[in-house]
Amino acid sequence: LHPPPLSPVTKIVSHLLVVEPEKIYAMPDPTMPDGDIKALTTLCDLADRELVVIIGWAKHIPGFSSLSLADQMSLLQSAWMEILVLSIVFRSLACEEELVYAEDYVVDEEHARLSGLLDLHVAILPLVRRYKKLSVEKEEFVTLKAIALANSDSMHIEDVEAVQRLQDSLHEALQDLEGGHNTEDPRRTGKLLMTLPLLRQTAAKAVQHFYSIKVQGKVPMHKLFLEMLEAK
């Protein structure tokens, strides 16, 4: 007798919306000359600070902190770049062919070309186009981000069933979200989940990109970023 509310957001999704990290700033060093080294130093520093935030965020995903410390580490070591990339992609949805690495670091193709970021730019844009086409909403984005973490296919999981339970609860949250407010497309949950292979491909390219920069040794990298890069 009571019609369901128009946009019922599940308890998990509303929690994920609350714990969504604040905006982050790249703050490029004004004393450095413009060019590849400056751009990459800015991005590596940004990524290092974002990693600290991502680790804090992960602990707030319902069920994540109940996993063993080793399994928490394994999931983050597998999925951190997917989470970073997904965040950039979501920030970039309102832009035309630009990537919003941070509020104060928006890169278009020309800037990317001039600062050695073109490979990364070209790798991430197809994912932005894919999510634009789907008109992905914030509720869906925060849930997908948590799913990317839980579904990271780490080879080193100790308690596979516990990780499966985490995946199931997040999957259910996404299904409830779609069942609630998107009845015109019964396949939307599937469509959103089907974006995850491209996210993984894109993140793998980004890891490769930063790993070769690390090997070249020209760009300073903070310890956490290096540690996560080496874990891949």
Binding site: V19, P21, E22, V52, V53, I55, G56, W57, K59, H60, S65, L69, A70, Q72, M73, L76, Q77, K223, L224, E227, M228, E230, A231
Partner: peptide
């Protein structure tokens, strides 16, 4: 774990939302 000590330490820290 020794190789991943920063991640380990950050995960062990309190779950306080201040990290966010």
């Amino acid at each position: 774990k020794e190789k991943h000590k920063i991640l380990h330490r950050l995960l062990q820290n309190s779950t306080s939302p201040v990290d966010l």
